[in-house]
Amino acid sequence: MIGERTLTLLGARAIAVTREVGGIALMTGQVLRALLPPRLDGRELVRNLHRMGNRSLPIVALTAFFAGGLMVVQSAPFVKRLGATSLAGWAAGYAVLREIGPILIGLMFSGRVGANNTAELGTMTVTEQLDGLRALAIDPIRYLIVPRVLAMLIMLTALTIIGDLVALVGAAVVAYLVLDIDWRTMYFSFADNLTPHDFFHGVYKSVAFGAAIALTSCYFGVTVKGGAVGVGRAVNAAVVAAAVSIMLLDFFITYATA
């Protein structure tokens, strides 16, 4: 028999998750409402774009390079056994463009930019800077949250497109170094088999991932309680929520666009 305590614990967990999902949905609504009519602080948006892009480009490029190489290494036994070197580029490119690229880049972006955003907003919250804005009759959603959400959405999409390119280069480099497949074979394997559809499939996903990362990281940032310990806990909760959202969205988008 399941103990009463276990049930209570499960119930409390379920309520907590429901509250967080509700809170994120509420914030989504507030952000959308602040965008209608679209009165945007353009300077703040550009500042955020620059900051976030600068901060995450190196790690995204490195991750993408390794991801492309990894996919070649993973398909290598199959390719070697069949002797079908012309398939290596397709196998790796297909996996990278549709799945591995957007997911790994999304997870890295969440760790670098999303988590940092939570920490920043969280620190502002515990030092009562958000209340300070409200006291000046400045809406924190419009002033702080909206530019960050838009910037993350745009930047992750851009980074995924750049990352896709880097990943294909990574795949070609690793194929040359490890499998002895020359550049031309790889290039034609990409060009003949990969369709724009494969590429856009991944780009749609990155738009959705960007929105999910942005909303979860802002939500957990502005709801921080309890000083330095609370900020650490909020960053932890934000990256976990972003990872779950990425996996769920990936599933639904894959099925919806099939």
């Binding site: 920490a119 920043e120 515990v126 900020v231 650490g232 960053v235 932890n236």
Partner: peptide, 8 residues
């Protein structure tokens, strides 16, 4: 708190 956030 910034330091802890950064570390995380």
């Amino acid at each position: 708190s910034e330091g802890v956030g950064w570390a995380t």
